[in-house]
Design a binder for these strands. Sequence first.
DNA 1: ATAGTGACCGCGT
DNA 2: AACGCGGCCACTA
Length: 117
Amino acid sequence: MQIGYEVIWEFVRRIPRGRVSTYGQIAKLAGLFRRARFVGYALHHLPPGMPIPWHRVINARGTISFPAGSANYTEQRKLLEREGIRFIGGKVDMKRWGWPGPTSQKSPGRARATRRA
DNA sequence: ATAGTGACCGCGT
DNA sequence: AACGCGGCCACTA
């Protein structure tokens, strides 16, 4: 259970504040192409107190993977909204808050003329 | 060693 | 848009 998780945590740590990534994307960045589930496992085994922004990782559908209403769900959503991420119908607009990748680090919100109100 | 279970994903109804 | 299904793979019983 040692090796492997740390690599994933490292990438999760790079997700900028106010943005979100997906299990699949993190897996891809870490060189684990089809292993999104492994990323979920890595976060599940994340030691308490570790300075890793685990809450910035959600699933590809733009929703939180915990059961709605569960303590974990509430916690993760609170942390994300605290960073300015908005939920619409329980979903996050990945076009707007999705993290492009390690190279790009633009700030959301002010962004594009995606004439969203 | 086999079978079941997940903080998943993407494609086809 | 919501659901179902198969693919993935580490971990546990």
